[in-house]
Amino acid sequence: MPSTPHTWITTPLTADLVRGALDLESTPHGILPHRLPAWARARNTDGQLAMAESQPSGVRLVFRTRATAVELDTLPTKRVYVGVPPRPDGRYELLVDGRPAGWATATGGNTVTIDMSAGTVEHTTGPAATLRFTDLSEGDKTVEIWLPHDETTQLVALRTDAPVEPAPAPGRRTWLHHGSSISHGSDAASPTATWPALAAARGGVELVNLGLAGSALLDPFVARTMRDTPADLISVKIGINVVNTDLMRLRAFAPAVHGFLDTIREGHPTAPLLVVSPILCPLHEDTPGPTAFDFSRIGEGRLLFTAAGDPAERAHGKLTLGVIRDELTSVVAQRAADDPNLHYLDGRDLYGEADHAELPLPDRLHPDAAAHRRMGERFAAHAFAAPDGPFSEGRG
């Protein structure tokens, strides 16, 4: 028998339905979630950071409803790299009362075509898409729609076959995390499968993910954003992007870390604060940046990375991951004497030598989906589950 047509109710997309974003920009099409507030974006001059913060890693729609069908109109912005196989469409994941209940992708949308060999970028516009989730369980429930972690997404319209209301405050702790593309979710299978999202689910906390691909560079406006964002638990994963960009020398690095942590502490003087060093990345363990593209396998549809620095340049203050770990260890040890809620985690405890042997970095820089899962499980075990873990219940 044909299904009964739905009578759709359109609900305005407002801030009380969105979690994980720090700002909602009104656009001609709807709203665009941002992970940095407008004032911080105004301080930024880098296109990479502008793209990264507009990709809604950890951002989700959350509402209560009796609806059995949900439609969401979105306008995605997709990236196409010339000479590289097409990227998979971003996933939208549906959770009902915290349990996976389906997923969808959006076709169409805007496109950014990037030719890395020529250094050109071309923008084209496209239509919005409609995602449809049906056969949801009857009765009152909490519905979450996690937006694609690596695909800029404008939210155009939300329709349901029963009224929607904002979900009540979750009544659990908020974890604010900042890091690089690995924290952002590069090469993760889906928005709920980035390592921070996996760790947050295991730890029973609300995630605000400031993982910013290519952009964990100790920017003062990011530190001030973290200072001003309500949070119970805070972590910063620092190092790989500083090497990737060859941003600073040894003389500047430790003072910049101190300044970043000082600013966070202005707004969160006693919250558990965890400093995480880089995971293992053989490319830059002992070789400085910058990181460059390796086009040698582009004919096979593979884009790799290579280290363009010279190990001898360490003598002149160039940074490697080994040097950065030593500096972070020293910074945390120095501050911990006056800050008992400051903690340190060596990133190689999340992904180290044995992990690289089993799950090598596919492009030499980013972990794959299986490694994301392993990192999330290990972070949760260390930070949340261990009785003396920095984020265990009772701290802060």
Rank of each mutant, 00 (worst) to 15 (best):
T107P: 11
E53K: 04
S215T: 04
R172F: 02
P88F: 04
A101R: 03
V276S: 01
V331P: 06
T107M: 12
V84T: 05
T14I: 07
A336L: 08
L210A: 12
H6A: 15
E53W: 01
G317V: 03
A271S: 14
P362S: 07
A128V: 02
E138V: 10
V70M: 12
T77Y: 09
A199G: 07
P269V: 03
Q48A: 13
V243S: 03
F260G: 00
D338K: 10
D339Q: 15
D187M: 15
P148T: 05
A357Y: 02
D338Q: 13
N44P: 00
E144K: 08
M51N: 12
H356N: 14
A292V: 08
G179H: 12
M375R: 08
L61F: 04
W103S: 15
E377R: 13
D228W: 06
L250I: 10
G83D: 00
I182F: 06
A370T: 13
S277M: 05
P362H: 02
R35I: 11
T160I: 03
I324E: 09
L304E: 02
Y81K: 00
L147S: 10
H356K: 02
A223G: 05
A189D: 14
P76H: 09
L72P: 01
V331K: 10
T11Q: 14
S183L: 13
D232S: 07
V222Q: 09
D338E: 13
D262A: 06
D232L: 10
E151S: 07
R173M: 07
G299L: 02
F305D: 09
H316F: 11
F305Y: 15
D150W: 01
P390I: 06
Q334K: 14
D135T: 11
A42Y: 03
L158W: 00
G203M: 02
V80G: 00
T291Y: 00
W175K: 08
P12L: 11
E144W: 11
T152S: 06
A333S: 15
N209W: 08
